[in-house]
Computed example of a mutant assay.
Amino acid sequence: MFSKIWTTKSTGVFSAQAEQLRQLLADADAVVLGAGAGLSTSAGFVYDGARFRQYFADFAVRYGFADMYSGGFYPYASLEEHWAYWSRYIYINRYQNAPKPVYNDLFRLVKDKDYFVLTTNVDHCFQKAGFDKKRLFYTQGDYGLFQCAEPCCPETFDNEALVRRMVEAQGYTIAPDGSLTVPEGVTLKMRIPAELVPRCPHCGRPLTMNLRADNTFVEDEGWHRAAGRYSDFLRRHEGQKILFLELGVGYNTPGIIKYPFWRMTAQNPQAFYVCINPGPAQLPPEIAPRALCIRKDIGAVVKEV
């Protein structure tokens, strides 16, 4: 594996970095976007603070957690409580639009290029912003899909209609623009009716989220088709001017995006690697001459470019 060096390029003038990225995009034969959680954070999908309190204040008081992630792992006493929490979580992070137009701005940046998106995000923001679904590979699942908890079959199930019913059963009204409101005098319920608990249509066991957490994750037919399209894209552009543009990727799962991007850049003398992340950035010295790390908010960089 590569040795690593702390990059010093992040201390450069931002406008010069933005101009360099603009030129790299213009010159590239193909662009591979690698997106992690930091991209959605830049777009306003934060899981704590005011946004958490807006939708989960009642859960926070009763159970004592202070962010959405903690609530997602809480051992609720019943499936009715579990899905009351998770239906709100899914709805606001999958079926509402991101608060900021970062994904839309990013689409305008690459829509005229030959691009492909590899992402560990599960919030569907790329497709909602207009990215071609045949150019997307969601490696870790999708908030919009259920799977059997066993699992008894390699299938996933769209959940939008049922999630909406779960949310409304708690007392919310869903407006035409997708926003949630609580009618005057209504106290939100923290459980759903038993008949709304999702169950596998084949075996009757409870359904769960199609999110990669362990070896029960279902890689369905759509997942495999997307993986094949990604492999085909890389094969078609082998040896060409490829820009590997990494956005908001940390070190939770670096083997999915970061390390492969480093490796493919090292193997292709025509390739260039760009990392945009406000946090500290590292680079293997082998690709440092063909790499740029911009330590800035992703939305600000995309807007500038």
Rank of each mutant, 00 (worst) to 15 (best):
V122A: 10
R135Y: 03
T120Y: 06
C148Q: 03
A129R: 00
K133Q: 13
K133Y: 13
C152D: 02
D123Y: 07
E155D: 15
N121M: 06
D123K: 05
P154L: 02
F116G: 03
F131K: 02
N121Y: 02
L145C: 05
K111Y: 13
D114M: 06
H124I: 14
T120Q: 07
Q127E: 15
F126K: 08
C153W: 00
T119V: 04
P151E: 04
Q147C: 06
Y115T: 06
C152R: 00
F131H: 04
Y138A: 15
D112S: 14
D132Q: 08
Y138K: 12
Y143F: 15
T119W: 08
E150D: 14
C125A: 12
F116C: 08
Y138R: 09
Q127Y: 12
K133H: 12
E155K: 14
K128G: 05
Y138E: 14
E155H: 13
Y138F: 13
F131Y: 03
T120L: 08
Y143D: 02
K128P: 06
F116I: 05
E150L: 13
F116N: 07
F126N: 01
G144I: 03
V117K: 00
V117P: 07
T139A: 15
F137W: 12
H124G: 13
F137L: 11
P154V: 01
D132A: 14
G144S: 11
D123C: 10
K133M: 12
K128L: 11
F131S: 00
G130L: 05
N121R: 09
D142P: 11
T119D: 06
T156H: 03
T120I: 05
T119F: 03
Y143H: 09
R135N: 08
Y138P: 04
Q147W: 05
D112P: 03
Q127L: 10
C152Q: 05
H124D: 13
G141L: 03
F137E: 04
K113C: 04
T120N: 08
T119M: 07
G141C: 00
K134V: 09
T139V: 15
A149R: 15
